[in-house]
Amino acid sequence: MLAKRIIPCLDVDNGRVVKGVQFVEIRDAGDPVEVARRYDKEGADEITFLDITASSDNRDTIVHVVEQVASEVFIPLTVGGGIREVDDVRRMLNAGADKVAINTAAVFNPEFVREASERFGSQCIVVAIDAKQVSAEGEPLRWEIFTHGGRKPTGMDAIEWAQKMADYGAGEILLTSMDRDGTKIGFDNALTHAIAAAVSIPVIASGGVGNLDHLVEGVTKGGADAVLAASIFHFAEYSIQEAKQHMAEAGIEVRL
């Protein structure tokens, strides 16, 4: 049976891992290659790098990071952040990335998703969706797409947007609840389930993981195909092995 995936996510700024990674055995916690190697050893099913480098002058640093990681870590690698045109996609894939995550650029130019998936295949195009609940209490649940880290509303319905992106050739959706991101109170499972039921491509749940039960709920309540987390793994609160063991005990199919 197909396993549910656990994906650690690393924020990379100017070629360095930020938001602190605390592993005793790691000499340089800021080195993405060393951190990726560690996650691979622990049994991560994929690794996602989010490039948060502000200056476009330093964009090439992520390319080198991907090249290095890809030459010694043999699991799928996804790169997001700053993917704006077909050339960005090509550069990342040539560097050794298996998938790219397109976020803001998809919102401003949906045709880019179509173009990229036709050129490189749906299998490598992930559309990242940042969604926020907009329905008031008592109303039926509704979420909209936000950009700029959840600050700018677009007025677009999250479910309709996910369906549109799937039609445009996205191979996967990375769904982040902006209400939950950073809160550590768990995924927005109602949001995840609404999207997972509406599209026939895999959905990765993201935003809000604070403990291992949250990962389980992302699958059992949210219907996610994969769960993504950053801080619980970075600060060595839990290892990926522990996370998988916990999911397996809850009856979820995982790669052990």
Partner: peptide, 14 residues
């Protein structure tokens, strides 16, 4: 789970 069979078939399978 009653959800659509996701295609692409993506991930680790036996």
């Amino acid at each position: 789970d009653g959800l659509p069979l996701k295609v692409p078939h993506m991930g680790w399978n036996q």
